[in-house]
Design a protein around this nucleic acid. Structure first.
Lengths: 181, 181
DNA sequence: TCTGGATATTTTAGACTTCAAATATTGACA
DNA sequence: TGTCAATATTTGAAGTCTAAAATATCCAGA
């Protein structure tokens, strides 16, 4: 995943604590618009940087500790929440990746005996993909450590920070989904 | 990748005041720990989802509008901020990707005439990669629209929300970077 | 029943990405 | 000067990912 502009999202200069009080003079309209644009862009770059930093660390930990990859873990995590199994298409929608991609990852997991494709009784076009018992066992071990890694990375935020961020991200996600076609 | 330095596992001054000082009551401790774990994990998944939703949309827009990819745009964005050019290694550190990856993307951009590799006068091992005049022209067009897309996607958050999120992400980034080896 | 558009999945080609190995050069030090 | 670990980059193999085409099936309507 690309790490856009990782270095560019630094605060341009530390703004003193006294926050500028929404200047209403018309001349400032343009500068406020510009400011707002830059705020959005900087916010995006910061969001992306954090996301990438975390992903890099999780990926390396997954590789060194369990000799597996993030996509495989993600796929198994989706299945773990759906004990009755999922269709490939539903899986690809939930993972935000293309169907072809899911096919490849599922192939590997199936080959490793961690998932199975079962024919869908109601639709002969579709498979129902599920964790095997072994897959569930393996996933549980991974999930425990994965959670520990994540918790460690978010230690710098206290409970109130986390709640605030959760709330903000939740609102962002809602409007992102609305804008989808 | 990148960041050497500060190998402190714990954020030095940032211990939040409400830090639980080893609550001994077993039931409470466990439930709070569990809650906290849950919060961190959910926060991470939400962060990742937002980041992916935005990336998917930007990628598609880049493809349909400019027939290019996100990594190429990212690379050009880095160069645009470094008029004197960058070494491949510096580029890869800033983009948070491996050197081999940068090689491939740079090859394509060079082939398209958008960047050039110039020998570094001080170090014959290194190249200095720069935007060509054409590359700069093309990038500027892309950057304008890219910013417009981003601004549109963050429209659901008001200025105060953005400031709050920026601040939180900034703190998160700091401790993520500190934890790097 | 037949037809045709929609849906579920796989396949294919090509781009992105990592890690590790290979190559070339630097710089410090004996 | 010669050596050797460090640095800058590329290469190669394998996994991940997308878009688009191909295949198979479903289902609604004539």
């Amino acid at each position: 995943m690309s790490a856009r502009a990782a270095r560019s999202d630094r605060a341009p200069g530390r703004r003193p604590p006294g926050r500028r009080p929404l200047d209403r003079r018309p001349l400032d309209l343009e500068s406020r618009l510009t400011q707002d644009h830059h705020d959005s862009l900087r916010l995006w770059l910061r969001l992306l940087t954090c996301s990438n930093l975390i992903q890099v660390r999780v990926r390396k930990a997954m590789a060194s500790r369990f000799n597996t990859t993030l996509p495989r873990f993600d796929l198994m995590a989706q299945l773990e929440r759906a004990p009755e199994g999922l269709q490939m298409g539903e899986l690809s929608r939930r993972m935000l990746v293309t169907g072809g991609n899911v096919t490849g990852i599922a192939d590997q997991l199936e080959h490793a005996g961690l998932v199975v494709r079962a024919a869908d009784p109601h639709d002969r076009r579709a498979y129902r993909i599920k964790l095997t018992r072994e897959g569930r066992r393996v996933f549980e071990q991974m999930a425990i450590e994965h959670e520990r890694w994540i918790v460690g990375m978010f230690e710098g935020l206290n409970a109130r920070d986390k709640r605030a961020m959760n709330e903000l991200l939740s609102r962002l996600r809602v409007c992102l989904r609305q804008g989808e076609e």
